[in-house]
Design a binder for these strands. Structure first.
Lengths: 134, 134
DNA sequence: CATTGACTTGAAGTTGACTTCAAGTTGTAG
DNA sequence: CTACAACTTGAAGTCAACTTCAAGTCAATG
């Protein structure tokens, strides 16, 4: 029998505020499996779900999109090709971020005041935005 | 003498709506260099700026942050170490996205209904969130 | 030279993701 | 067994980033 975590502990360990946790519950991203009095109690696994939620949010997904994935178990499965496609666009976005990082590193050492006048900068920008999808 | 672009053309070519362009102008992210009657006219270079804005937005930067970079030319320069640090966190985020992509590819081929029950999935999640900063 | 349609403005409205609030409840420490 | 800190609720408020609106302007077309 696994120990349950109360909302304060989940908040501390996940970095999500208690009101945020309640909000996620309302949006059906997570569930509180029990109450201690009025206080929500969570399974430890919720920490993993929250880690996934934070990750997906930082990747630009909305809570709706994340929720539709998280609510899947027991429901219909996301088609394989949709998953593979999403993986592909995440990888593209990752490349864009790496290129943006390269731009910043270049700017750090570039003498131009207005970086749009620097040809190297412009080339990096073109590369960085070339992969733009969505 | 370079040809100016009017708002409709900039909107079409950048993917940013006319109202979005006006909003960016109000926020001082871009400038309209002229008017044809009341209609804003832009330098072609604005397309590059908009590409950078879109890129930075997708990387999670707010318009304020982006604007503070874009408004720099002529003003003070961003310290080198700040740039390098930002580059580093972008690269970390890129790694997280790649790991999230790996997770999705795994899920595409994994038989588990509830992926949190799959040990490979959990491992990928731990890896993907390990790099979590900020 | 009158019409039209694409723009203009400032203000108000919307959406997503929360946060804050006021009033109430309750497990636990003293 | 009382007090209190930490939760509870639903509703309202906030913030960023736009969008929509109503009323007006004007370049270009017929």
């Amino acid at each position: 029998m696994e120990r349950l975590l109360d909302i304060a502990e989940v908040s501390d360990r996940s970095g999500v505020s208690p009101s945020g946790l309640r909000y996620y519950e309302k949006r059906k991203l997570i569930v509180a499996v029990a109450r201690n009095g009025l206080r929500r109690q969570y399974e430890p696994a919720v920490l993993q779900e929250l880690a996934l939620i934070n990750l997906a949010k930082s990747a630009g997904y909305s809570l709706d999109e994340i929720g539709s994935v998280l609510r899947r178990p027991g429901a219909t499965v996301i088609p394989r090709d949709v998953l593979v496609e999403k993986a592909g666009s995440l990888e593209e976005q990752a490349k864009r971020l790496v290129n943006l990082a390269k731009m910043l590193r270049h700017v750090a050492d570039c003498p131009y005041e207005d970086h749009f006048e620097c040809s190297r900068f412009r080339k990096l920008l073109i590369v960085a935005t070339k992969v733009t999808n969505c």
